[in-house]
Simulated scan of single mutants.
Amino acid sequence: MRKKQTIPLSLLPYFRKWLVKNGWNGRKHGNDYLIVWKAKHKQIEIVNLKMNKPCLPVFKIFLNEYLDCGKRFLEELA
């Protein structure tokens, strides 16, 4: 069984804001629990900082944008 990937707690608020900015709807339950959905996409869940399988490619897109733009990317989401 493959171990679930975890998201750093420091990036979770930025990732959540990025998801909302990109049309995802969701609910935040505490600091480390997030559920978001979007039409024609599978539901994304982050529970105890562990991402479900549909979350991984979306998080990868987020990280690529962060790597391309650097600190400015996170500042724009703050």
Rank of each mutant, 00 (worst) to 15 (best):
M1D: 13
K3G: 10
K3M: 06
Q5H: 01
T6R: 12
T6Q: 10
I7T: 06
P8N: 05
S10R: 00
P13K: 03
R16Q: 05
K17Q: 15
W18E: 04
W18G: 05
V20E: 11
V20I: 07
K21G: 08
N22R: 15
G26S: 01
K28F: 01
K28L: 06
K28H: 09
K28G: 08
H29Q: 12
H29M: 15
H29C: 12
N31E: 09
N31G: 01
N31H: 01
D32Q: 05
D32L: 01
Y33C: 09
Y33A: 14
Y33T: 10
I35K: 07
V36L: 11
K38N: 10
A39P: 06
K40N: 14
K42Y: 04
Q43H: 07
E45D: 04
E45A: 04
E45G: 02
I46V: 12
V47M: 08
N48I: 02
N48L: 01
L49N: 01
L49I: 01
K50C: 15
M51L: 11
N52F: 04
K53L: 12
P54V: 10
P54F: 15
C55G: 11
C55S: 11
V58H: 02
K60N: 07
I61Y: 05
F62Y: 13
F62M: 09
L63A: 09
N64H: 08
L67N: 03
G70H: 12
G70D: 05
K71Q: 13
K71N: 09
R72Q: 01
R72G: 04
L74E: 00
L74P: 02
L74Y: 02
E76A: 13
L77A: 06
L77F: 11
L77T: 00
A78V: 04
